[in-house]
Simulated scan of single mutants.
Amino acid sequence: MASKVILASTKQSVFTEPSWRYLRHLGYKVEFFDIWNKAIWNNDILVRLTNQFSKFKMSLVVKAEKNIGRKLIKVIKDAQPDYLLVLKGKPLSSEVICQISALGVKTINWFPDATTNWHSIEILSAAYDYFFTYDPYILKRLKALGRNNCYYLPFAANLDTSAVYQPRSEYKYDIVFIGSYEPGLYDARVDYLSVLTDLDLHIWGNQNWLKTSLAKFYRGTVDDQKMFNIYRQSKIVVNIDQQIEVEEGLNLRPFEVTAAGSFLLNDPVKDDIYRLFTDGEEVVVFNGVQDLRKKAEYYLSHEKEREKIAQAGFNRSLAEHTYSDRLKQMFKIADK
């Protein structure tokens, strides 16, 4: 009989759909539980009130999260799953998770946030039977706290195992960057991208880009499908992660870009770019502003080299970095 998994996440999360789909491909019975606070965040009046009055917000959020926890426990009791897999799951308290573990259900969390959310990581990692982080540095900190239930699991490429690289003969964009801008957090993105403004640069992300010197290169927001199409139509995709040097784990971009079969120019700040891909063969890493400019010019004018690297990056993600790979590893650990 197939094992049953309750997948607790939000429909908005980029991790939800591929996790659900590939769990089913691996033979699990999967039931989705939405932890989104619909009662609050789908109500415009309440959203405005919570933004204006912090005490009101806290009271409302706490009540909503307790209600979500009660509903999840009821679902668990009715469905009697073998596993609860939570993707981030901040609305679920440690008490709720411990109650579910006491019912004999293996509780798993794949937590996608960086050290900027360390408070939640520290609290939630103690509650789950198995806690997975994408960042080796975060894992080291958790192990230092004695958390032997914690493991390293990088993000994944949304690729079917039967996928085949599709070469391209036409492009719409020379250089693209997709990502948000937040003052203080992502200032390096402006610094780096400013040296590419005469190389057909296009930027998508949140509207904060309109407040920067790169406003005229801003093209709007994107959903996942549009993002994939943009990558497919681009000669070069640039990835600039949070510049937190102690961190080592990659954000989603390298997996998304290589899954699209596109050429990736990646910053050097996270060590995992060298662990999970081969620099110069599957992706290209730039070291500093001038090196970014130099490599962008070079690969724009060397199409065969660029396409060879793009195909190798696709093949690496297909061979080692799919959701199927990650979920197999996760449940192998949980089944020990």
Rank of each mutant, 00 (worst) to 15 (best):
V105F: 06
A114L: 05
I175Q: 03
Y128C: 10
F132I: 08
K172A: 04
W110E: 04
L193Y: 09
W118M: 05
L193D: 10
Q166F: 00
R189I: 08
A127I: 10
A126R: 15
S125A: 15
A163W: 00
P183Y: 07
Y171P: 01
Y171A: 02
L142R: 07
A144C: 07
S120A: 15
Y134A: 01
V190H: 02
T133I: 11
F177Y: 14
C150P: 06
T133R: 07
Y130Q: 04
I123L: 08
K106I: 11
Y165E: 06
D113C: 04
A163V: 00
K172Y: 00
Y173Q: 04
L193I: 09
S101V: 02
Y128V: 07
L193S: 11
S194R: 12
P136Q: 11
T116P: 00
D135E: 11
F155G: 00
L103Y: 06
K172V: 01
T115I: 15
F111Q: 03
W118G: 06
P154F: 06
T116C: 07
D129Q: 12
D191T: 14
A157G: 12
S169D: 08
A156M: 08
S162T: 08
Y137L: 02
T116L: 14
G104P: 01
R141A: 08
R147W: 09
Y128N: 11
A163Q: 02
S125D: 10
Y181L: 05
N148F: 12
A144M: 13
D174L: 05
N117D: 14
E170C: 04
P154H: 13
R147G: 11
D191V: 10
E182F: 14
F155V: 00
N149F: 10
S120F: 15
G179T: 10
I178N: 02
P112C: 01
K106L: 03
E122S: 13
L185E: 14
S120E: 15
P136W: 10
Y171W: 12
S180W: 00
T107S: 11
Y151D: 03
Y192R: 00
S125N: 08
Y192C: 07
E182A: 13
Y173N: 12
T161A: 05
T133K: 02
S125Y: 08
S162R: 02
G179N: 11
A126H: 13
A156P: 00
Y151S: 07
C150H: 05
A114E: 13
A102S: 15
A157W: 03
Y173I: 05
L139M: 08
I175M: 02
Y152C: 01
Y137A: 08
L145C: 03
L139G: 06
D187N: 15
V190Y: 04
R147S: 11
Y165L: 04
Y173D: 03
G184C: 12
S101K: 12
P183V: 11
Y152E: 04
P136N: 07
Y152D: 04
